[in-house]
Structures are given as C-alpha cells and as structure tokens.
Design a binder for these strands. Structure first.
Length: 895
RNA sequence: GGGCGACUAGCUCAGUUGGUCAGAGCGUCUCCUUUACACGGAGAAGGUCCUCGGUUCGAGCCCGAGGUCGCCCACCA
C-alpha cells in the first residue's frame, strides 16, 4: 500500500455519529473508497517469500440476481476469509467474474425477446447480438450487488466466461483434450429437452415422483406355442414407444421365463419379430418380469441393447413428434401417440390391464420439462482417466475438503464417474471448434490458435461445416482457476497465484464444478487448482427451502438496503457449523442488527470518552496492560481481550466461522459492553484512573474492531477510521481492510479468577435485592482481598446499593463467598424463605459431594486419569465439602 | 438399491482431539423511564444430549443395533 496514495475517506463516513448507524448512506461510500484506494488489489510486485491467499469467486450467473445462497457464500464466508487473510499480511486475491450461463441465459433472453419479436425470426448472428446486449444490461447489476455485499474483490481482474480471450482459452482447452484422446463423438442416448431443444448432462437431470398409468401389454408369440405356454406380457408407462421395441428382456435366472430366451415374439402395432433375451438389468419382481426393450428411447434399454447388439429405432424426433419409423403412430405428438397406442392395443385385445403407478420421472433441471431420451451423435468427454489423479489429490490430502465427510461423497461420485455429454444444441455459449467434412465425413479439429479450417485434410474437399453446437457451461467454468490468470500463457499472475488457496462454494455444486475444476486443473496445469474446499449448506428462509414457486425468496439486496450488509453477513454465518443447512429467520436478522448496533454504540461511547480524555502520544493498538495505575476492572478486561483474540483467531484458523461470531458476540456484548463499559464510568470519574481507563477503552475497541472486521466490515471500518483519527495506530494503517490482525498478548489468569469471584458476589447481591427486597442503603459488610472497591462500583452502578461493604467469613472459594453474602443479607429480611432455599441447596450440595467422593474412590480413576484431571477433581471435592459444611452451619444459624 | 447427514432447553441451532460441555440466540417470567445503545440494562426458570447395548476409570462426543427425518447417487420399466 505504501507506494499508492490513499484518497481521504469520505466525509460521510468520518462524520457518521448518530445513535443509529445508517448503512444505506455509509456502506456504498465506504466501499467505493476501499475500491478507489486499491485495498482489494494485491500488491503489484510479489514480495520475496510472500504468502498468498487466492480464492476465485464462484462465478454467479450473469442473468441472475443474488440470492441468499450467494449472500452466504460470497458475503458470509468468502469475504470473511479474504479479509482475514489480508489482515494477516498475505497477498490476497479474491477474483470476481460472471458466468454466461448457457441455457438459462438463453431462456431468459428468449423470454425477453418474445415480448417484442420472435427468436425464430432471427439469424444466429442477430440472436447473439441480442444476447450480448442483454449481457451488458445484466452484468453491472450482479457486480453492483457483489459490491453491496461488501466483497473485497479485485475488480481490476474481473473476468467473464465469454470474454473473447476466455473463448480462445476454452477453444485451446478443447483441442488439447481432443488431441490427448479425452474427447470423442458417438451415437449415444442422451437427455433431450423438448422445451429447450437441447441435450443435457446426467447432473442436470432431476427426478420427481409422479403417478402414471402402467399398461400391461401382451406380445403375441411369433410361432404357435404348445398348450399351456404363458403369454408374454410386459408392463410399460410409455406404450407409444412400443413401436421402437427391438427385444423383450427377462432376467436370465427367472424360472418362469428363462426357457423362452431365444424365442420370438411380435411387437404389437408394428408386428415386428423380436427375440426374448436374458439380461440382469431386468427386475424379476416388477410387473410380469418381462421388459420391453426400446434402445432408442430409454437409458436402461439402450445399455441392454449395447450388450446384445440390438438395433436402435428412433420413433420420436427432437420436437417430440413420432417419426415415420413409428408406423401407425407416425406424425402424432408423443402424448397423443400414447393415447392412440392405448386405444389400438385395446381394440386388438392386447391391453390386458392398466393400473396407476407412482414412479420417478426425469425432468430437465432448468425448465422442468419431462426428459425425452434420444439417441443422437454427440461430443463426450471420457472421464475415467481424468478422474484418477483428481481422486488421488483428495485422498493424499493435497486438497482438503471441509467438512471432511464431503470427501466420502466426492470419492463415491468420482469412482463411479460417467462420461460427460458436453455439447448443447443452443446458440449462446462457446462454439465447438470442430468441423465436419461434408464429403468424406472427416472430423477436423484444428491446432490450437489455428484459423478456422477451410479444407479437409483427408479428401481436400472445401465443403467443411462447423459443429453448430456449443459447449456445456460447466465446460468453461471448470477452467476458471487457471484461465482467469492467463493460461495457457505463462503469465506472472499464473505463476504467482496458481495453485490457489481456497475454493468456497455450496455443496450442491461439488460435482458440477468443484470436481471438474480439480480434474481440468490437473490436466492443464499439472497441479491442483486449490488446496482447500470449503462447502457451505443451503439457506432456508422461514423454515422452507427457498424456491421461487413457493414465493419465499428473501432477496439479500432487500435485506441489505433495509438493514445493511453487516447485519446480513453476520446473521448468515453466526452459529452455523460447516456444511450444515441453515435457517435465516427474522429473529436471527434482528439479533444481528442489534449486535451491529451495539458495536456502533460502543464505538460512539469510546469516541466520546476520548474527546473528554484525550490521550496524546498514545497508540490505539498498544495495550496499556503494563501501567501500574490501572484499576482491577481495566486489568480484567485487558486480560479477557487477549483471551478473545486468542480464541477467535483459533476458531477462524480452523474454519469454525459460526463459532467465531458467537464467541465474538459473547465477548463484545457480555464482557466488554455490559461489564467493562459500565465499570469504566466509575474509573473515569477518578482522575488517577481516568487515563488508564480511556486507554483501555481505546485499545479494547481497536482489538474488537479488528476481530469483527472480517464479518462486519462497514461499521468496524467506519469506527476504526474515526478512532484512529483520535488515537493513531503505531503502523498508521489507513483502513481496517489493510490493518494487522491482532496477536494475543499475555493474560493475567489469577486476576481474571478473582474478578470472576467478585462478579459472583455482585450477582448475589443483585439477586437478593430482587428476591428479598433489599433496598438501596442496605448495609452489607464484606471484604475480599484488596478488591472491595470494584464490588462497590459494580453494586453502585447497577444495583444502587450505595453502602455495600461486602465481607465474608471463613470460606475461600467464590461460591462460598456468594453464599455468605446472600445468607447474611437475607437473614435481615426474610429468614423463612431463605431457609427453604438453603435446605434445597444443601441437598443438592450433598449430592454433588457424594458424586465426587465416589469418583475419587473408584478403582482405576486415580491411576489412569491424567494427573491434572485428578487434581481438579480433588479440589472440587474440597470445595464441595466446604460448601456442605458452610450451608449446614448457616442453616443451623437461621433456625 | 447404494451412500451421506441430522436427532442437544418451548423454537432455531453451537458443542473442534472423550475428563468445568450441559451452551448461545430467540421466546417465557421478575425487575429497572441509568446521560453509548430501550435495536437498552439487572436477574430467573427451562434439557434422562432419540432408544437400547458395548468400549472406558470416565461418553452428548468412540463402537454396534434400532427408530424418526432429510439429502445425494443409481438403468426401477
């Protein structure tokens, strides 16, 4: 940062000081300033031996708005990590971009265009022009939303999957994969979408339960059969595909049927003679145990057909219309054909039965249209070989997946990986760099960076046609970690930032994206794309999985505009464990908002205090812990602060982000605000203690702001900028974004313990004030070491016990102290009520004592348990003995 | 059919290597018109950690069986 001139922070940020922080005013200005200042761009020159933190934004679809899943990933986890690593001094690259989103984007734009014009009236070029127009409209939207979330992305390295140079890289990748034998073209059965008019991959095929008619159809024997031969009856939900049947299959071990294997039957409606074959894919328990085999229109049947060399008949075309091969059904749409087939079968007496069946049908993920499996010539990627090193990378621990159990799911999928249909019959996307010779059929895939071929290298024909299809969107996004850095050129960025550090995304795209990036990264770079994968869960709003149809989509942008990004980011992550689905409720947002507000008002209090008690020459990041003039409260909070720094750091470092925020909130609210801030008011009244208190406030605030910044960037930096104007830091950091993450200093455990005892005493007093009606002015006599003053402070400040000299008698432990105070105060007020309580407590105390005794008497415990545990247990025993004795004594006194 | 996960206070969930781990937030109840914040403060009540076995000196945490719910993968016509 040193070389660059940092512009002055906006006045709106520096002057914000109202009772309520105004996110809608401050956040955009502050973000713009961060960006202008170049905080998000890693230093231009790599420092020798620098540590880098590199994370690619899981590129959102260009046509979409942010949803809660994005907000959780980008604003909740990724930016938290990026900011934390940046504060740890690592050269941090969090690279933004967007995905052209092939089919979805095309659908969206088609829908828009349909309002004015007919897509079918447009040429491919005209349509793509329209697509680009829309891209330029959508892109700024999604980028603005990423800024609203506060993501510290390096906008100077922004990428889009359809950028011309990205297209070039995808083309090079394709040609290399082809030359290395990973790509092939084949007639195979694919998922076909009648709505989108394209194929799609297995991963994009969803299954839904549906109830259909199951029709039982008799296939007559081709030859006369002896008396008593059973009829061949198959059960089908798709009678219209009967016309494409090329066999009937039974299980080879099925006692009912196996003797008929090799015999012929006639396919109804077309009278085709087909064989009965034996195949293990048949479930003997289903229907009659006989399966009609339609290799042209069913995945299972296609595979059976492959095994038995059956012919493939395509009876349905890409529009869903029955082809001439469908004979009597030709020309009808598939739905009409089904009705017609049923009708004809019934007439011929071949329909023996119909019954409803609930089964799973495949639908297209994008548009929910029922799958129409077709056999088409397609480009495929052979996955088995590519998967091997990717499996190894995770197994060996080179790549770590968090949470760990997701690794099992990864292995499961990778070890059973199937080839990937990579072509899509749409216009929007990366063209397939393959040409087909119209004369000899040769496939021409030119050398990388070669111009488009014009002549067939085999037969010299100049009649070449480029493949009209485009590549699956995931084909290009799988390359994201290296193409964005300049691959295949050996750029400085590629050398410096590959392999990356972290890939954060939802577990739902582990296969779609993460696995493929690992495979392609290893293939193209010879090295893994990232060292760790953090997978977050689904966000539900109000109890249900979010979906548009349910109308319960809570827009993150709406929440940000209403409550601020800080609140949303905190609410999404607080208390959620790695990989778990979570619930975003009004209550959580409320609590997050209140915490952010708390932080803001703590800051205001400290800043006001510093106006009244200026601390010239002091640094906000310097602990006053050594100052002998510090009071007990100051010593306590300073020690607790170091504990918080230590704990919070450990939690982030081990990916316990949900706990990180809970711990932070506990410390800030319960300890810093509720206890210390109140006590500081006492300290500040004492001229001798005031400077120490002011410094303590400034220092603890400084620590808290740093600790909270990764999740709550806006409020924390606003306060830091204001604080550091009053009391600078020793390193003059211009913003929290580039400030140093705190290192935990020494604690004073003994003092913490004593102070905790005092707090117990105070709590006891407060309790009594309510329970027994102790009024201000009640004299309570007590002393505890040298800390009497603190007790009085606390009691004064909150319980209004103006003259509470607390003393205690024989006992040593805090519990005894508390009891002593409680009992003596109560004795003056309501002895009867107190006696009942004491009796109950005595019983409980005796119970605990017995347990301690039994544990220590148990054979093995003293020998086998670690010494520290035994010692701990012994002191617990002593405490319990003391407590029982004490309660007993007090009780006797009350009687 | 295979695989994975969840089951902890009324609700939503934390609990990292077995020994202050029985927690947080919300909700509930009782108090407090305190000059950083009422988006506030002081307190309280509330759980056989799904069940049954096992390992261990010791289990919410490890192992086995079962129950309920959810998710993923797969060629159920």
């Amino acid at each position: 940062m040193a070389t660059k001139t940092i512009p002055t922070p906006p006045a709106s940020v520096l002057d914000e000081n109202g009772k309520n922080f105004r996110p809608s005013v401050v956040e955009p200005e502050l973000y713009a300033w961060w960006e202008r200042s170049g905080f998000f761009t890693p230093p231009a020159e790599a420092k020798p031996g620098e540590k880098t933190f590199v994370m690619m934004l899981p590129l959102p679809n260009v046509t979409g708005d942010l949803h809660m899943g994005h907000a959780l990933g980008f604003g909740g986890y990724e930016d938290l990590m990026a900011r934390w690593h940046r504060m740890n001094g690592e050269s941090t690259l969090y690279l933004p971009g967007s995905d052209h989103a092939g089919i979805i984007a095309q659908l969206v734009v088609e829908r828009e265009l349909a309002k004015e014009t007919d897509r079918r009236g447009l040429t491919r070029e005209q349509f793509l022009d329209e697509m680009w127009k829309w891209m330029r409209f959508y892109q700024p939207r999604i980028y603005k939303q990423l800024r609203q979330l506060g993501c510290s992305l390096d906008w100077s390295r922004l990428r889009f999957t359809m950028d011309p140079d990205m297209q070039r890289r995808v083309r090079i990748h394709f040609t290399r994969l082809y030359k290395h034998g990973h790509l092939y073209r084949a007639d195979r059965i694919v998922h076909w979408c009648l709505t989108c008019q394209t194929t799609y991959s297995d991963l994009e095929a969803l299954h839904v339960e549906r109830t259909d008619q199951l029709s039982y159809v008799r296939y007559p024997w081709a030859e006369p059969m002896p008396e008593g031969t059973p009829d061949v009856i198959v059960a089908t939900t798709r009678p219209e595909t009967i016309v494409a049947d090329t066999a009937v299959a039974v299980h080879p071990d099925d006692e009912r049927w196996k003797r008929f294997i090799g015999k012929d039957v006639l396919v109804p409606l077309v009278e085709r003679r087909v064989k009965i074959i034996g195949d293990e894919a048949v479930d003997p328990a289903f229907g009659t145990g006989a399966l009609k085999v339609t290799p042209g229109h069913d995945q299972t049947d296609f595979e059976i057909g492959q095994r038995h060399g059956l012919p493939i008949i395509s009876a349905i075309d890409t529009k869903g219309t029955m082809t001439p091969a469908a004979g009597i059904l030709a020309g009808a749409h598939r739905d009409a054909a089904r009705a017609k087939a049923i009708e004809l079968l019934r007439e011929k007496g071949l329909l023996t039965k119909q019954e409803p069946i609930t089964h799973a049908v495949g639908i297209h993920d994008r548009c929910k249209t029922v799958d129409e499996p077709l056999v088409l010539k397609q480009w495929w990627m052979a996955m088995k070989k590519l998967a091997q090193p990717a499996i190894e990378a995770v197994r060996s621990g080179k790549i770590e997946i968090i949470p760990k159990y997701q690794e099992k799911i990864y292995f499961e999928w990778m070890e059973n990986i199937r080839d990937w249909a990579i072509a899509r019959q749409i216009w929007w996307g990366h063209s397939i760099p393959a040409w087909y010779c119209q004369d000899c059929g040769e496939i021409v895939v030119p050398d990388e960076d070669a111009p488009d071929p014009t002549r067939c290298p085999k037969c010299k024909s100049d009649d070449l046609k480029q493949d009209p299809d485009v590549l699956d969107t995931w084909f290009s996004s799988a390359l994201w970690p290296h193409t964005t850095l300049g691959w295949p050129e050996k750029t400085k960025d590629l050398a410096r930032f590959y392999p990356g550090t972290m890939l954060e995304t939802g577990y739902d795209i582990l296969f779609f994206w993460v696995a493929r990036m690992i495979m392609m990264g290893i293939e193209n770079m010879g090295d893994i794309p990232f060292r760790a994968v953090y997978l977050h869960g689904l966000v539900r709003v109000g109890g249900e999985k979010m979906s548009k149809s349910k109308g319960n989509v809570e827009s993150p942008v709406g929440v940000i505009e209403e409550r601020g990004a800080d609140t949303l980011r905190f609410a999404l992550v607080n208390g959620v464990s790695a990989g778990a689905d979570s619930q975003l409720s009004e209550g959580k947002l409320q609590n997050a908002g209140e915490f952010v507000n708390k932080l803001w008002n703590i800051g205001r209090y400290v800043l006001r205090t510093l106006e009244a008690h200026p601390q010239a020459g002091w640094h906000a990041d310097q602990s006053p812990a050594g100052d002998p003039a510090l009071g007990p409260a100051e010593r306590w909070i300073l020690s607790r602060t170091e504990a918080a720094v230590d704990e919070v750091t450990r939690l982030i470092d081990t990916y316990h982000f949900g706990e990180y925020l809970t711990t932070l909130q506990q410390f800030v609210w319960s300890e810093f605000a509720d206890v210390y801030l109140e006590l500081s008011k006492q300290s500040l009244r004492d001229p001798k203690r005031a400077p120490g208190a002011a410094r303590t406030l400034a220092y603890v605030l400084d620590r808290v702001l740093r600790l909270a910044h990764p999740s709550i960037p806006f409020v924390t930096d606003t306060l830091a900028l204001q604080l550091w104007r009053a009391i600078p830091t020793s390193d003059g950091a211009p913003s929290l974004v580039v400030a140093k993450w705190p290192v935990a200093g020494a604690r004073d455990l003994e003092h913490e313990e004593r102070f905790a005892a005092l707090a117990d005493v105070v709590r006891a007093i407060r309790n009594l004030r309510q329970a027994a009606g102790v009024r201000p002015g009640t004299r309570v006599k007590a002393t505890l070491g040298g800390e009497t003053a603190s007790i009085r402070d606390l009691a004064d400040a909150i319980a209004h016990l103006t003259q509470s000299d607390v003393s205690f008698g024989s006992g040593t432990g805090p519990a005894t102290v508390v009891r002593a105070v409680e009992v003596r105060v109560a004795a003056e007020h309501d002895a009867g009520e107190q006696r009942a309580r004491l009796e109950k407590e005595l019983a409980e105390a005796r119970d605990l004592l017995t347990r301690s005794r039994e544990l220590l008497a148990r054979p093995g415990f003293v020998d086998k348990a670690p010494a520290s545990v035994v010692a701990n247990e012994k002191s617990k025993l002593a405490e319990r003995e003391e407590r029982v004795r004490f309660l007993d004594e007090e009780l006797r006194r009350l009687r």
